[in-house]
Structures are given as structure tokens and as C-alpha cells.
Design a protein around this nucleic acid. Sequence first.
DNA 1: CGACAAGTTGATGTTACTCAAAAGTGGTGG
DNA 2: CCACCACTTTTGAGTAACATCAACTTGTCG
Lengths: 242, 242
Amino acid sequence: MMKSMASLQPDQQPHVDRLCDLATLSPGEIAALRAAARRARLVGARREILQEVTRVREPTIIVSGWAGRVRYFKDGRRQILHLLLPGDLIDHIPCDEPLAPTTIVALTDVRLAPAPIPAHRDTGLDRAYRLANAMELGHLFRQVARLGRFDSFERIADLLIELSERLRSAGLTTGDVYHLPLTQEMLGDCLGLTSVHVNRTLQQLRREGMVEIHGSMVKLLQPDRLRSLVNYQPLRVSGQAD
Amino acid sequence: MMKSMASLQPDQQPHVDRLCDLATLSPGEIAALRAAARRARLVGARREILQEVTRVREPTIIVSGWAGRVRYFKDGRRQILHLLLPGDLIDHIPCDEPLAPTTIVALTDVRLAPAPIPAHRDTGLDRAYRLANAMELGHLFRQVARLGRFDSFERIADLLIELSERLRSAGLTTGDVYHLPLTQEMLGDCLGLTSVHVNRTLQQLRREGMVEIHGSMVKLLQPDRLRSLVNYQPLRVSGQAD
DNA sequence: CGACAAGTTGATGTTACTCAAAAGTGGTGG
DNA sequence: CCACCACTTTTGAGTAACATCAACTTGTCG
């Protein structure tokens, strides 16, 4: 236990793994991503990465840690609109105009790096970025469906699977085990539930032998049963070479 | 009452109005949009515009009618992920890869036209398209927040305001009055509620003097009160000339 | 050890769902 | 013009899911 999470992927960085999983990158692009990580700035947990008002922003990539796009309400409650994981891009979607006010907050300590600019269109990196954006949209659709039509059990099951797949893409899983650094309250803010209800529902998932949770380690015991429960459709359709 | 809705905007077409509202278009671009409308194909209500599997797709614009991006569930229920109104674009977001399986269905009769291709970057039309995409993302965020943290009353209030603003942009409102061609069941599918509960909540909105509804005509009686109730933030931040 | 955040549990209240049926609406054909 | 049909809206009664409130426990870190 001398080393923490880092030892899971000794030779690769999550954000590099993730983008390599999306497209075939050139050695130069990989080097650029690694170099960017060295210049990463650290944002502490609970701090805001992006305020509502910010206009000009630079394409940024999450090197490590989890963040969330959130919306706050009058009564102090909040909704996590969207989870941002290592390898995810922030504000890469082209838009010169001031957009909807959404804040991005670091849910854990986060390392952020400026996203390397692709040399030109249709380089591997460019394709990876565009795919990442498309997937972000897909995740948003899934989030809407979860909140709209799933009960608490299905919501959590669905999210646990989605996270497992997203983290796998970043090389952050070991089989069906991964590190989930969110409190039950954060999960609730993401899933439109109270932390109390998240707690009870997690117990139900454990009782039914679907998952094992020790501290922040999550193990999916019956991923296939979970997937069929929520009719899980992977985002990226088959037969996609690189 | 000889003419129906068309008389509201005798000289403009909704999709043209909408894109003109987003950016200053050249006369040529406006002509191209009008021409596209003449070549529009009709899709009847309840028919699918886009199937889940479809890969190659052409940027399309909604000339008239309402559509919705939907996800279906095993038990026959569905969630409308996102409403598409006249002037909205379908699949203009650049993505060569097969994406999340979502179907787009015509909620009313819909007229669809191929979206004119901008001559080059940073023409008015190009800016309008990119702004439209950014706003679509903003609407998705709002949809997530609605479903996650709003109760039925707030959900409906919030949606009614959003629709009023979106339709205004397309020239489809008269003051705070507009035509809402969705059944209560569709509203429920959009808001994660049952049609029964939508019905009761609409009555509550009427009882409290917030809205008036006759058939499919909606009138917001106290738009400011509605807005403050849900802390409504307009998508496009102020001071945006064109 | 103390303090604070996170997780857990119980009791109770409320919101929204389910099931079922009635009443209104519009379109179609006889 | 009316009868009929399908669809939508409306209403009622009972139920399930989730929230709320308030403790209490566990774990972690200084």
C-alpha cells in the first residue's frame, strides 16, 4: 500500500489511454498529451473550475480526478448535470458565444491541462476530440433517460455501468473493479436522489448480489445482469476499428 | 378564422426567423433557407425521422412541426430526451462515428429540409448553426436539471417558459401566447411524469393563475412569476448583438 | 483524543404512480 | 346529420417510491 492508485497503470496516463482508445494517435500527439500533463494545474476538491459567467475559455483536458458540470438552485440544492472523468474535455465544443450558465466544479482533486491543438483536421487527435464530444452528448442523453424514467435502483445500476465503461476506456478499471471517488451525496446530486435514498438503494444492490462496495472501491458482480436490467446500450456501436 | 397559424407570420417562415434571430444572415443565405423549405419532405406525426441504427445522415433543418429525440424502454415506456422545434437542426453536430442509439420521432406532422451548407466558416449561417448547437446543449443541461431536481409543478412551469422563448425566436408566439401541439402524454414523456399527473399539475397551474390553456393554445399569465419560481436563466446571455 | 465528514438507521410525510372509469373531442362513414 | 370510433382529457381511490427529519455510528485526520 505504499503506492496508491497510480500503480494500476504504471506506464500510461489515464487521459492518454482514454484518447488513444478513441482514435489512433501519432507518437507526436501522444507526446504532446504527456507534455501537457506535465504542465497541468491542480484544482482542489470542491473548488470551481469554471464559473458561470466565464466567457473566453481554452480547451482543457482532465488529466486526473473527477469533475462535474453542476447547476445550483435557490434553496441550496444542486444537480450534477454531467460527470467529467480523466480524458474528458472541457469546453471543446466550438462556441464563440456566451452559453448557458453552468459551473464546473472539481469533485475530487483534479489536474487540468490545456488540450493540445490538433495539427489539422482528421489527425488522430482531432478525431479523438470529436468522438469525445459526440460521446459527451450520448452521456447527456443517457442522463436524461435515467432521470426521466428510471427508479432509484435502475438509476444507480445504470450509472455504475456507465462509469465502469468510461473508466475502462481510460485504463482505470481492473476487470469489473474501479475506484469511485464520489460520496453518496454526490451520487444523489447526480441522480436526482437524496443521499439517504442512495444509501438504502446501494444496500439493496449489495443485498441482491449485484455489486460489492468497500470504501470507494466498486466491484460489479453481475455486470451482465445489471446491463440487462437497464437495457444498457453501449455508446459506441460495434465494428469501430480506431 | 379562415386562415390558421400561418397568418401569424405572413411574410416569414419559422425556420428562417429562427436562424435570423441567431445571427445576421446574408440575403443569399436567407434565399437558400427559403429554397430548402420548398424542397422539404413531409413526415407524418408519430413516424420516425431517424432510426437508431442509421449511420450516415445529412444535416437537416426542421421547417415546421415538432419532433423529439426519444429513447424507448423494454416495458413500452419512453422518454423524450429533447424537443426539436422549427428552425432546430438535426444531426448537425459533426460526428463521423456511429453514436448513441437515439431515435427521432415526429410528434406532429413535420416538414424537413436539407440544411443549406454555409459557403465557408464564419458566414452568418455558419455562426447560426454553431449557436444553435450550443443552445441545444444548453437545453439538454436544462432538461437534466428539470428532471433531477424539480417537482412536477416546477418542471411544467420551466418547460412552458423554455418553449415560449424558443418559439419566440422562431416568430411563433404572440406575446405570451403560443401553440403547444403536444398531448399531455407527450408532455409526460418529456418531463418524466405520467399523463395523469401532468393533467393534475396543469390544473394546479391554472388554478394559481399562472397559465391559461385552451385546446393547444397556451398563454402565460404571469411569466415573471413563473420565471422566478424556477429561477429561469435565459440561455443566451445579454448584450449579444447578432 | 476530539472533531468533522460520511455513512447508516428509523419513523413519518408527501409526491407521484397505478388502476379504473367517465366525459369530452374530432374525424369518418353510413 | 348522426352514429361510431379512437384518442385525449379528466376525475377518483388506493398504493408505492422517495423525501424529510433526526438521531446514531463509523471512519479519518490532525
